[in-house]
Design a protein around this nucleic acid. Structure first.
Lengths: 200, 200
DNA sequence: GCAAGAATCAAACGATCGTTTGAGGATACG
DNA sequence: CGTATCCTCAAACGATCGTTTGATTCTTGC
């Protein structure tokens, strides 16, 4: 595997496990089996590496989410549950290839970082997706005020990030296959979030 | 103010802003206006300081939450909304004195840390509260399976942590007083979470 | 008022951090 | 074959990390 990919893979894992400050380039390059200087050679700096970790997965994730939304947006039969599924399912699929599930933990860490540079980066690369989904929610929930809708979408995001990154006390039982566990996660998530969005 | 309190205050602020690894003892002691060696003198180590930051606020928070729950638990007229309010309101009150609001951000960071030591500490000092609240939810939602209930409580926790730590895009508008903003947060949170918990 | 303990201080400890350097190996193209 | 380009490597850079030390100051009780 090319050096750049090995670095990105190891970075994703170690950032998820120890945070951006907590994972050192020496741990990282050792885990990837590459020379220490390779990070600065291929990415320029640690900060640029962090951005690249995000860009690689977010491009994938955003693309799939928007594609799924496109298929149902504006259609007469579309339900809240459909829109939520369009948002959640791509995140589950991401967990299939490689250690993509770790990326959701990295994303959760990024939310926790109130660092302005990182927040701006996320807003630039993530904001337009949220905006399109919010617009579709608005269509399906016409009685909600704009403010109320923003609040609820925000709360859904919180629940989702929490669940997808494996924060909580819900752990996969050893007798449940991983893929089935993810499907269950999605089912619970959609049922809960749909009901929360539709609150009177 | 005594040295220990000044350190704890500065630690809370810097841990919220830069994370546990990101905030150094030199920044921290400089912000507190105390000598660098004071942390190791009064707390023994940085890790013990981190635990003390949690203990101080969690004791307060857990006490108020359990007291509020005690008043309504098992009573015939109690609603889901009441239980949620018992859980949420103490967190809002915490934001009144000093920079207690920063603590919710520290707590959110702790969730993001998958460090086993910290997770065990939180489980020991936080778990029994969650268990009591979950028991009361179980009483009010008798049709829910145990598994389903755990999932929903977990998702509520995620939404709550997200909202309370100011993760999301909802920012307080400058013309809304801070206390009113917190009340609005609680109202939206309770309405959303109650509906999510009661999902069919 | 003076000995004893608690608290603060500047300074230094070894370790580790992100980054840079310059020499050397690998690869592709004329 | 030679050379230019991409890449890797060990080593070192200065900075900063958490922690420790030993001297000094402050506080307390007899």
């Amino acid at each position: 595997m090319p050096t750049k990919e090995r670095i990105l893979g190891a970075a994703e894992e170690l950032f998820a496990r120890h945070g951006f400050e907590g994972a050192s380039l020496r741990q990282l390059t050792a885990a990837a089996g590459v020379n220490l200087a390779a990070v600065n050679y291929h990415f320029g700096s640690k900060d640029r590496l962090i951005e690249e970790v995000f860009r690689r997965r977010l491009d994938q994730l955003n693309g799939r989410r928007l594609a799924a939304l496109q298929k149902i947006a504006g259609e007469p039969g579309t339900t809240i549950e459909d829109v939520l599924a369009a948002f959640i399912t791509p995140a589950l699929e991401l967990s299939h290839d490689g250690n993509g599930s770790l990326f959701m933990r990295v994303l959760a860490r990024a939310f926790a970082e109130h660092d302005d540079t990182l927040r701006k980066f996320l807003s630039d690369n993530y904001g337009h997706v949220m905006r399109q989904f919010t617009a579709e929610f608005a269509r399906l929930l016409p009685t909600l005020s704009k403010e109320e809708l923003y609040w609820r979408v925000d709360l859904v995001t919180g629940a989702l990030t929490h669940a997808m990154s494996g924060f909580g006390m819900i752990q996969r039982k050893s007798d449940v296959p991983e893929q089935r566990h993810r499907e269950q996660t999605a089912e619970h998530l959609i049922r809960f979030a749909a009901s929360g969005l539709k609150a009177p």
